[in-house]
């Protein structure tokens, strides 16, 4: 994507960026990704995906494993370059938009040689925030996930749930406009999972502006958390469903909601 040789598609793209609604956080335009191994082109992982995610919108990407949902997330994160099409994050190409991004993974990815506090500081440190400021921010967010008492503990001394809460604090400390989440709660046991999900939802609901792309294979989790569910299959968008359950939500009761049941039955067969 270079502007030095303005081809037709580049110009179109540029025009699109200029005219795009400023309420859009992420625009995925006709994106295809094929992983070529040793120069041989293989079956595309994504083909012609179009998706626009508005500011403050919580979108869940669901689908069977291998359907391409993580690849789509990686394309938004700038970890994978689309073979065709383009992605913009807050109006910029992903690699230039990383200051807007927060990232959470299934495994907490805490660095084992940093204590809880310094793990929360990690992203701020990478972005060159001063020591005093990042300490203050980190302490604030550790407090928000009720882990101030654990600030000096090493990751191995924390339970799975605590570790993932440290990861939440690390993510929020960056004050991201866009949260990219790749099955962030998949590794937790059921009880821990619900309490971490609830914590996450509280943090997110307390401020309206953060967009979320949340990859999961768990349809129930997707409906409970998201505003919108995008079902991916064979590298395409198969369904795009608005959830429409009012917020704030209480995860303990959300599955009793009529709309939850409807969406669950509508999509379950396609996920299998």
């Amino acid at each position: 994507m270079t502007m030095t040789s303005p081809t037709r598609s580049n110009l179109e793209e540029h025009a699109q960026t200029l005219t795009s609604d400023t309420n859009d956080a992420i625009r995925i335009n006709n994106v295809s990704v094929a992983y070529g191994s040793d120069g041989r082109s293989s079956r595309p992982v994504l083909s012609g995906v179009n998706l626009t995610i508005r500011k403050g919108e919580f979108t869940a990407l669901v689908g069977r494993s291998g359907c391409g949902k993580t690849t789509l997330l990686n394309a938004v994160a700038g970890l994978v370059d689309p073979t065709e099409g383009s992605v913009t994050v807050m109006g910029e190409p992903p690699r230039l938009a990383r200051r807007h991004l927060g990232f959470m993974l299934a495994r907490d990815a805490l660095l084992p040689w940093r204590n809880a506090l310094r793990n929360v500081e990690y992203g701020l440190e990478l972005r060159g925030v001063s020591k005093a400021e990042r300490r203050q921010t980190a302490l604030h967010w550790l407090g928000a996930v009720q882990l101030l008492h654990a600030q000096h503990l090493w990751p191995w001394q924390l339970s799975q749930g605590m570790r993932q809460r440290v990861a939440l604090a690390r993510t929020w400390a960056l004050n991201p406009d866009v949260l990219l989440m790749d099955e962030p709660f998949a590794a937790l046991d059921m009880n821990t999972r619900q309490s971490v999900q609830q914590k996450f939802l509280e943090l997110w609901q307390s401020e309206e502006h953060r967009s979320v792309i949340f990859v999961t294979h768990d349809l129930g989790e997707a409906i409970a958390l998201a505003d919108r569910i995008v079902l991916i299959g064979d590298g395409r968008v198969l369904e795009d469903v608005t959830v429409g359950i009012e917020r704030p939500r209480d995860l303990e009761f959300v599955s009793a909601n009529r709309r939850y049941q409807e969406i669950y039955h509508q999509l379950r067969a396609q996920i299998g």
Binding site: L101, F103, L105
Partner: peptide, 12 residues
């Protein structure tokens, strides 16, 4: 761990 690198790169 590849996940540490992936996270670090996305965080900038």
């Amino acid at each position: 761990d590849a996940e540490w690198l992936r996270l670090s790169i996305v965080l900038g």
